[in-house]
């Protein structure tokens, strides 16, 4: 992430001239009485990793579904790769790839067949060569001829992401890419995402894991009760709280502290430190 901050922002003027990869303005969505999104605004710069952070039920998935044309917003506009999601859904679909919350692989087919299927559906030439290349890139070559139902959670997620990369879409949505994965698999997914962004792909990822946002994202937006309550770089978010508090040891506030302070739920701050190690995070209860 730190490297990216250096090479990723060569000079401010050109970046501002570039149209953002994703622009979300005033998006609202209700399901019956439930007002899930209450006016969401943010931009995602081309080639960056943008993390949408929020608890369960904050509306992250709803937003991703709107941006990937699976759902229509009640109000507001969103453009993806310059195309309005409501007016030009076909063009949006040409520019994106969605990796949903549940690994969307065909379990009856083998890993290779899954990749070939997507390559064919994207009307690409040499679907078999594309499949072999991706199997190699995601260390699935040996498992390529096995049914996806025999894969571990991490392998399945890797296959899922590999399927999303076919056709090199400029924008990728990852909805909770590491939920339910073991620590090793999480780190693998993180490496994959970093590599992707390094090649210029814009990544919008949602997560409820604070360390994930901290690890990956160039910018982090906190979605809470249907609106973005904070949006900035990790450093900017950290600056929202006093930089250091003097205790027996001096420590920087973690992103988790910032998050909980912003969200207004403090009863679990004492677990913040333990959660810094990868992996053992999921047991926490998320604030409502």
């Amino acid at each position: 992430m730190r490297e990216r901050a250096e090479n990723g922002e060569p000079d401010m003027t050109t970046n501002q001239a570039l149209e953002p990869a994703i622009r979300v303005q005033g998006i609202e969505k209700s399901f019956k009485d439930l007002h899930v999104l209450r006016g969401v605004d943010f931009d995602v710069r081309t080639g960056s990793i943008f993390a949408l952070l929020g608890s369960n039920g904050a509306g992250k998935t709803t937003l991703v579904r709107i941006l990937s044309t699976l759902l229509k917003a009640d109000a507001g506009t969103a453009t993806v790769h310059g195309f309005d999601v409501a007016a030009k859904p076909g063009d949006v679909r040409e520019s994106i790839s969605l990796t949903g919350q549940f690994a969307a692989v065909d379990e009856v087919l083998t890993g290779r067949e899954n990749l070939v299927l997507v390559a064919k559906l994207r009307h690409l030439k040499n679907p078999r060569a594309i499949a072999d290349d991706l199997l190699a890139r995601f260390s699935l070559t040996e498992a390529g001829n096995r049914k996806a139902s025999t894969y571990s959670g991490g392998m399945r997620r890797r296959l899922d992401i590999a399927m999303s990369l076919i056709g090199n879409p400029p924008i990728i949505f990852l909805d909770e890419p590491t939920t339910g994965l073991d620590p090793q698999a999480r780190i693998e997914v993180w490496q994959t995402v970093k590599k992707l962004a390094g090649q210029g792909t814009t990544v919008l990822l949602t997560t409820q894991y604070l360390d994930e946002a901290e690890q990956l994202a160039d910018r982090i937006a906190i979605l809470h009760k249907g609106t973005i309550i904070q949006n900035g770089t990790l450093a900017e978010l950290k600056r929202l709280l006093p930089p250091a508090k003097v205790e027996y040891v001096e420590k920087q506030p973690s992103l988790e502290d910032v998050f909980l302070a912003l969200v207004g739920d403090t009863d679990e701050t004492d677990t913040a430190d333990d959660d810094r190690s990868y992996g053992t995070v999921p047991a926490r209860k998320e604030p409502r």
Binding site: R93, V118, R122, M163
Partner: peptide, 9 residues
């Protein structure tokens, strides 16, 4: 979820 994948393609 494969249905949603197809729909977003």
């Amino acid at each position: 979820g494969i249905f949603e994948r197809f729909q977003s393609m």
